[in-house]
Structures are given as structure tokens and as C-alpha cells.
Amino acid sequence: MLAAVRSELGADGLQVIWYNAPGDGVVLFAAGIEHADLSDWVGMSDLAIKLAEFPATGSRVREGACPRGCLMTLAIPLSEGIVTVTGMFLRANEAARRASTQTLLRLESFLRPFLELWAVTRASSAHHAGLAAAIDHCDVATLILDRRGGVIFANSACEAMLRSKDGIAVRGGKLCGSTLSDTLRVQAAIEHVLGSPDAGQARPIVAMRRAKRRPLMATIMPAFTAEDEIRAEVVVAYLFDPEQDLTVLVEPACRYYGLSTSETRLTCRLAAGDSLAEAAVSLGVREQTARSCLKQIFLKTETNRQAELVSLMVKSAVRVTGVGKVQVF
């Protein structure tokens, strides 16, 4: 379409740039470079930047010069930023420049809806990418499923769980349990959520049995609210592993509270359910040494009992992927 705009203008070169902020441009279209040298394109960009920064002053069309001809730029303010359309004319007299100005103004009504749609689509894509990243950074295994149990999206934590092939799997594009009964219960939970008249009360939990470990807990949630007039035929499933290694979650919290390496190791063992004596054996130290270390941990975390310490660590757990790279500022 923009190539047709260049033809309609009779321009030797055409450059279309979108500015979300002054000086921060994204080239959407550039043609005619075979007729231009670098200084021509620099001149086009400079003129576009000036007009994008001051779109309301004077005419929406501004004329400029390049080493071998003239430039004409039209600024089109959008709901999301400003688009500049710059034509380069190597041979243009006064009459031709006036005609080009009128053509640019006439084309504005044709270009604006197209560019508005592009800007809205771009913003929507950025929002969707941000939401996908937010879900992917969460360490809770998360899936988006359709009515048949088909997997629409799985975050990195869920993909890691799927790779273990213990309790859940994807077969034929659908979420399945290790047994047929588990798969059927997941499907029944999805139907219950989608068919519930009150989306706020539909929160079924399904146990996904595993071979030698405790079952995974799958919570099925609606992807809509009770106020939504149009309900999406999708649900969100959160998977929890009751035997998850808490060390990776507790270590960043230990760094936050300023615990030393030995204090962190002891805290992680206690958070995993060890008694002080069991933790001492696991760490290869005497129980009295572990007890002295625990006193320092109590002091730094402002806790007084082992149960209080474990509760604090669990509540302070950093629930994002890649927590090993978390830095305390």
C-alpha cells in the first residue's frame, strides 16, 4: 500500500517513520534508495524528526532540502504516537511541489485509518507479549486450556514439569493425567468451570497421581469474571508440586536477610522439614554447632522459634523463575 502512496506522489523516494516519543523512530517503509545517497536519507529523517516533535505548529506538511532535490513531510498524529510520511523529489519545480503538498494532504484521510489500526495492533501485541512474559516468569506451572483440554499456552515452569513425564503429559495437544480417570476428572473440572453461572465460585482442584511421589495439585480457574458478557471458552490451570524443592525459593530470601552461606544451608534444611538434629547430620556438623548457627539466624531474621523461621522463609519465597540470579539491592 505504501508503495502505491509513493507512486501517487510521484516521489523518487519515500520514507515512513512512526514515533512513539520524539527522536525515537521506527522505520515502517523506505523505498527509492537506489536514487538516493546517505545524505539524502539523513535529510529525510532529520526533517521527519523536526515535524514529529512539533506537529501542531503551522502546516502539517513541511518542506525541506536534500543535496540533490527537495523533501516534503506530512505528519499524521495518531492515538499512539505520530507517523511521518516523507517524499524525496530529485527534480521538482514550484508547481510540482504545490501539487505534492495537496496530494499528501489528500492521502492523509486514506492513510490515517490504516496507520491507526497498525498502531493499535502494535500496542495490543506489546501488551500480550508483556502478559505472556509475566506468566512465563512465574515459577508456578501455568497452562491455558480450551474446552477440550487442548493446551493453548504453557509457561516455562509447566514445560519443565511436562518434561518429567510424571503425573501430567500432553497427548494429541491435550492435557492428560497418568491415568484415564485423572484425565476425565480434569475434563470434568473444565466443564464445571465453563458451565458455572458464578465464575467466582468455580475453583475445582484435581489430584494428578504420580508413580512414586505425592500427586500434583491442579487448580482449574475461569479465564473470565462473572461480569463478563462474553465468556471465553478457555480456562487457566495452575499445577502445584507438594514435593517441590524449596531450596531454590528460600535461598534468595536468605540473601535478603543477610544470612551467611552456612546459615543459608541450615535454613534450607529446616524449611525442607528437617529437625535441627537431622539438619546437622545432613550438613556434617555437630548439633551444638547447628544450634549456635540457628541463634544467629534468629537474630538476623528477628524470629524466636524454628517454626516462626520456616514460616517467614516460605512467606518470603521469591516465586519467579531464575531466582538463582536474583540480586538484593
Rank of each mutant, 00 (worst) to 15 (best):
P215N: 07
S260P: 01
Y257W: 14
Y256S: 06
R255S: 04
T225G: 12
A226F: 06
I220Y: 06
T247S: 15
C254M: 05
A207F: 09
F224Q: 05
R213I: 01
T225F: 11
E251G: 01
A207N: 06
V234F: 12
E229T: 12
M221D: 09
S262E: 12
P242R: 11
K212S: 14
P204M: 03
R203S: 10
P204G: 04
Y257T: 03
L216C: 06
M221C: 14
R265Q: 14
R214V: 02
T267F: 08
V250P: 00
Y238H: 13
A226Y: 04
Y256D: 02
E243M: 08
L239S: 03
P252N: 03
D241R: 00
R214Q: 12
R210L: 02
R255G: 07
L246V: 15
T219W: 00
V250H: 04
P242H: 09
Y257V: 09
R203G: 05
P242M: 11
V206L: 03
Y256G: 03
K212E: 15
P222M: 09
T225M: 07
E229A: 14
E263R: 06
I230V: 15
V235A: 08
G258L: 03
M208G: 01
V206H: 01
M221I: 13
A237S: 09
D241S: 01
L259C: 04
R213P: 00
A218C: 12
D245Y: 03
A223N: 13
Y257P: 04
E227H: 10
A211W: 05
S262H: 11
S260D: 08
K212V: 10
V235N: 07
R265I: 02
R203T: 07
P215D: 09
P204W: 06
R213Q: 14
R265M: 11
T267K: 04
T267Q: 05
L249P: 00
P222Q: 11
F224I: 10
Y238K: 10
E229F: 11
D245A: 12
T219K: 07
L259M: 07
T225I: 04
V250E: 03
I220T: 05
C268F: 01
A237K: 02
T267S: 15
A207G: 01
L246A: 07
L216G: 01
P242C: 11
V248Y: 00
V236W: 06
V234T: 14
F240V: 12
R255K: 15
D245R: 10
R265E: 14
T264D: 02
L239E: 07
V236D: 05
T247N: 08
F240C: 10
F240A: 14
R231T: 08
Q244D: 12
R269C: 15
V206F: 07
V206S: 00
R203F: 06
A232R: 13
V234A: 11
R231Q: 12
R213D: 09
L259G: 01
M221H: 15
V234E: 13
Q244T: 07
G258N: 04
A232W: 10
R214P: 03
E263I: 03
V250R: 05
C254Q: 02
I220G: 02
V235W: 13
E263P: 00
A223V: 06
E263N: 03
V250L: 06
C254I: 07
V248M: 10
A232V: 14
E229Q: 11
